[in-house]
């Protein structure tokens, strides 16, 4: 089955991102396809490479990047939600005149149309959030 995933909460504060990760790994292991993971609301905070959790804790952001690179999964951060919360890639930082960027490897910034497209193309759209 082809799944699209939506993650609506940031890492650590809420379990939604962990649960979505666990689901993606289990689905891939079972032979399913993850078409796209779309990060919305505070979920965009999963996509900053400036995350430095304590060494005895999991690194949720890196787990997403590893998953994306191992399985070629499309991780999309909503641009409108990202702008509100200070998540930038190099192009967006240049456009906004901001002196740096923090998008994590494997993530890209795009519009809400990517979420709707995911819903149209996938067999199932799953929402992880509060």
């Amino acid at each position: 089955m082809k799944y699209s995933i939506m993650v609506n909460e940031g890492p650590y504060t809420h379990q939604a991102s962990d649960t979505a990760l666990h689901f993606c790994k289990a689905a891939l292991e079972a032979g399913h396809e993850i078409f796209r993971v779309f990060f919305y609301h505070d979920g965009v905070n999963n996509g900053t490479r400036f995350t430095v959790p304590p060494q005895d804790d999991r690194n949720i952001q890196q787990e997403w990047s590893k998953l994306a690179s191992a399985h070629d999964i499309d991780l999309v951060v909503c641009i409108a939600a990202a702008q509100r919360r200070g998540i930038m890639d190099a192009d967006e930082a240049k456009r906004q005149g901001i002196d740096g960027n923090n998008i994590a490897p494997g993530f890209r910034i795009s519009g809400l149309g990517q979420l709707i497209e995911g819903g149209i193309i996938a067999d199932r759209q799953l929402v992880f959030g509060d």
């Binding site: 919305y40 609301h41 939600a81 519009g111 809400l112 149309g113 979420l115 709707i116 497209e117 149209i120």
Partner: peptide, 13 residues
């Protein structure tokens, strides 16, 4: 607020 933003995009599609 952010739900409403998705609704408008959904309609545009």
């Amino acid at each position: 607020l952010e739900s409403l933003e998705v609704v408008l995009i959904g309609a545009a599609f």
